[in-house]
Amino acid sequence: MKEKIAIKVDDLTVAYNFKPVLWDIDLSVPEGVLMAIVGPNGAGKSTLIKAMLDIIKPIAGSVEIFGKPYKKQYKEVAYVPQKGSVDWDFPTTALDVVMMGTYGSLGWIKRPGRKQKKEALEALEKVGMLEFRSRQISQLSGGQQQRIFLARALVQQASIYIMDEPFQGVDATTEKAIINILKELRKEGKTVVVVHHDLQTVPEYFDWVTFLNVKKIATGSVKDIFNDDNLTKTYGINYKVSVLQ
């Protein structure tokens, strides 16, 4: 079977102040997978997805989204940043934050209208947050804030969803709700890339995995490569899959 490649990372090296944090990464993410990026703290997981999204400029290498550079494909990609990356005291409502997801398709100057509002309300309903639409965002719990971010990505109607630790600091109900939506996205043929911390849930949640620790350790289907050997190589201590499961 010849699969289409959604994201192709070629010889990517990223450095902060000339200190490389990602070294010579080659990575192909096939279309339609639900992929976890795992690795210890400081492995460069967030940096990798930021480089995929053209937020960080690499010192070498390139990223292609469906065969073209990100700049030409940004409408195909939706990004869910870490919850802590924004100021939740910003004077705005849940609905308004979700509406921001429609700004990309609107382009410069044009203002969101009824159609965008309808899309945003639908996305809020999907993540179970419709009743909180007029709530000021600082009055939402951590889990609710994460759902708002997910809804914002959903309204972008992208083909690729890239998320930075969506399960961090959320309650069990929200975690279940989020993973169900991600699995639904995969069913629709979308590609989902998630920076993930909890190794125990990898086999249950994901079908594709990338092990990362400054260099790429391994990438492939969870069935084939989620094993003691790769875990040990990535985390540097003896890991047993059997213990995790």
Binding site: K50, I55, P81, T92, W108
Partner: peptide, 22 residues
């Protein structure tokens, strides 16, 4: 008035603004 939406999104979430092409 022209750039209200752009100002808002780049103030609230710089990274999202960047990924959306603003």
């Amino acid at each position: 008035i022209s750039f209200f939406k752009e100002l808002k999104i780049s103030t609230f979430d710089k990274q999202l603004a960047a990924t959306l092409g603003f």
